[in-house]
Amino acid sequence: MSTPYPGPGPGGPGPGDPGEDPGATPPQSRGLAVTLLVLLIAVVLGLAGWLAWYLLGNGAEHGDFEAAPECEIGETEALDELVPGYGSEIEETVGSVQDTFGSGWQCRWATPEGSGESVPAAATLVLVAAPVEGGEDTAADTLRSTADGNDAQPVDGLGDEALKWVEDGAFEVGCVAVRVSNLYVESCYTAATDYDATGSVDGDVAAEDAEILARAVVEQLPAPDETD
């Protein structure tokens, strides 16, 4: 005679009673899985937000200059010395918001005609601020394209990059172009060798003087946080 099945222990299900599936995940494990999933989603969303900020904001190149300074910035002590008694001959805007190269000012100063007080001399200045976004590359392209074909030489310690060259002609003209962030600065200079202006100073000398003028302008540029 077989011994009767004693049955489950107190509170336990019988052989045919419905009970928990032995293969089911315990409630504690399910809670941990949900917690980990929530944390993973939060990390992914945070990473996506940071990536969007980097690409749209920090990752995009932004120039320091919303607009180019006006011609007044070129009226330095260096201009007083190199163009004695100068008068302003040109002060005009160049470019517009529609132009990809940007917008700014072109300026020219010269000794008064027929004054006889000093040897004739003249200086020009171009200031162009490229659009803020991507402006550094645009200003760099302007610098290279302007100097192209003039056997330009690099100038150390001036802006972010600078080139110097001589333009031949009846009067030799020395020029220096500088890039400061998204701002393009071009300074040119020439002077006569006598009061009758029968000839010009050597182009290399004029280029050295143009560099002096350019450095004086760059020193006057506002700090980046003052251009906002």
Rank of each mutant, 00 (worst) to 15 (best):
I73K: 10
V38L: 15
V38S: 07
L55T: 14
G23R: 11
D202Y: 05
E81L: 10
E186S: 11
A129R: 04
V97D: 12
E72I: 13
V166R: 02
A170D: 10
V205S: 12
G102L: 00
G116I: 09
D156Y: 00
L47H: 01
V178G: 01
E89L: 12
G11Q: 09
A122K: 02
R108I: 01
E89M: 03
V128N: 08
Y184F: 15
G74L: 04
Q106T: 08
K164R: 14
G169T: 06
H62S: 11
Q106N: 04
Q98E: 12
G85Q: 12
A216I: 07
A170N: 12
F65W: 09
A78W: 03
E161G: 02
D21S: 13
Y195A: 14
T198M: 04
L51Q: 15
S2C: 09
T25L: 15
A121V: 05
G11N: 08
E92Q: 13
Y184R: 09
Q220M: 03
D21A: 11
A177M: 00
L51S: 15
D225K: 11
P224L: 07
G16Q: 12
A121L: 05
A147M: 11
A68H: 06
Q153L: 10
G9Y: 07
Q28G: 10
A24E: 15
R108S: 06
D64E: 13
K164D: 00
V34L: 14
P120Y: 09
N150E: 01
L158R: 04
S29A: 15
V34E: 13
A60P: 06
P18C: 06
V180W: 03
F65E: 02
S200E: 04
E219D: 14
V155A: 02
D141P: 01
E219A: 14
S88Q: 07
E167H: 12
E92V: 03
D151G: 12
A122W: 00
F101N: 06
G116T: 04
L36R: 15
E167W: 09
D151N: 13
R144Y: 03
D99Q: 08
G174Q: 03
L127M: 02
A140Y: 02
L37D: 01
W109V: 06
P18Q: 08
E167G: 11
D202S: 02
C175T: 06
A223W: 13
V97L: 11
E136Q: 14
E219K: 06
Y86V: 04
E75C: 02
S88L: 14
T142W: 13
F101A: 11
